[in-house]
């Protein structure tokens, strides 16, 4: 993937990121600039929707349109953007708490709607903006300020969930591999349908996982079949390794493809909308 540094510059805003030096999110931001540059998307055609958390500030660091929404609510907002204008390129950015705790319900339904957008899940295994509490992807034995004796619950695996909820593109990467991440983001944007990119994005301040993930990640083997749904779920939940690459790829009509189909059906059955005629038919 050829990326011209100058093209990349046009997506970078004058606002300096507030993330801690070394934060994994820098890698994702760089990867996103590289991906947008590679696709040569005009910034005004791109909408970046975020929730709340360290990742929530993402849109403001770009020259694209942005919507810094509420904690957990990226998907409702992104759905509305797409309903109003399906031609826009929408990238949603959410953290692990944002996506899987407070926004878990929306995440499930966004997957099954197969909205044509790219969801960047920036997973640092805890709540960092609120200074270090356990999240749904915290390890059960992980000690945080809110789980000083370990957690009551098991953790969740977002890629497996997304596949089973009906997402049609599910991939995983590591933010320290910015170029690889950019390549995956390009594929995700190009994929017609809901694309999840699960990005392991360590928090250097509260739970530094760089070394852990450097050891644990592994690229998917040659001949891996991303169309095998249950195989992909098994791969995503492998306890030994964090497999990176495109875990799953399926095909279903997208939300955007359904819009004109539903309109056509409504018009076939009931005719094109004529409000004055409808009102006049309600005459006594």
């Amino acid at each position: 993937m050829a990326v011209d540094a100058k093209v990349r510059e046009k997506y970078k805003s004058e606002v300096k990121p507030i993330w801690c030096p070394g934060c994994g999110d820098f890698g994702v931001l760089t990867a996103t600039f590289m991906a947008l540059g590679a696709l040569n998307l005009p910034p005004e055609q791109v909408v970046i929707v975020s929730g709340i958390g360290c990742s929530g500030r993402f849109p403001g660091f770009t020259t694209c349109y942005g919507f810094h929404s509420l904690h957990g609510r990226t998907m409702p907002v992104a759905l509305g953007v797409k309903a109003a204008n399906p031609d826009l390129t929408v990238i949603a950015v959410g953290g692990d708490g944002d996506t899987l705790a407070i926004g878990g319900n929306h995440f499930m339904h966004a997957c099954r709607r197969n909205i044509n957008l790219t969801y960047l899940l920036l997973d640092n295994n805890l709540y960092a903006l609120t200074k270090g509490q356990a999240s749904p992807t915290s390890f059960p034995t992980q000690v945080t300020d809110s789980t000083p004796f370990g957690s009551y619950e098991a953790d969740v695996e977002p890629c497996a969930l997304a596949i089973l909820f009906g997402a049609t593109f599910v991939a995983r990467e590591f933010s320290a591999r910015a170029k690889k991440t950019a390549e995956i983001i390009v594929q995700a944007i190009e994929h017609p349908g809901f694309s999840l990119v699960h990005i392991l994005s360590p928090c250097v301040t509260f739970f530094d996982t760089y070394d852990l993930y450097k050891q644990k990640i592994a690229e998917l083997p040659e001949g891996y079949d991303p169309t095998d749904l249950y195989g992909a779920v098994r791969t995503a939940t492998d306890p030994e390794r964090k497999w990176v690459g495109v875990l799953y790829r399926g095909h279903r009509p997208t939300f955007e493809e359904m819009i004109p189909k539903i309109r056509q059906k409504a018009e076939e059955k009931l005719g094109p909308g004529d409000l004055q005629a409808m009102l006049d038919r309600r005459r006594v």
């Binding site: 998907m75 409702p76 907002v77 992104a78 509305g80 953007v81 797409k82 309903a83 109003a84």
Partner: peptide
């Protein structure tokens, strides 16, 4: 949320 996204 969808209403706000659409209006935006």
């Amino acid at each position: 949320g969808a209403v706000l996204g659409a209006s935006f």
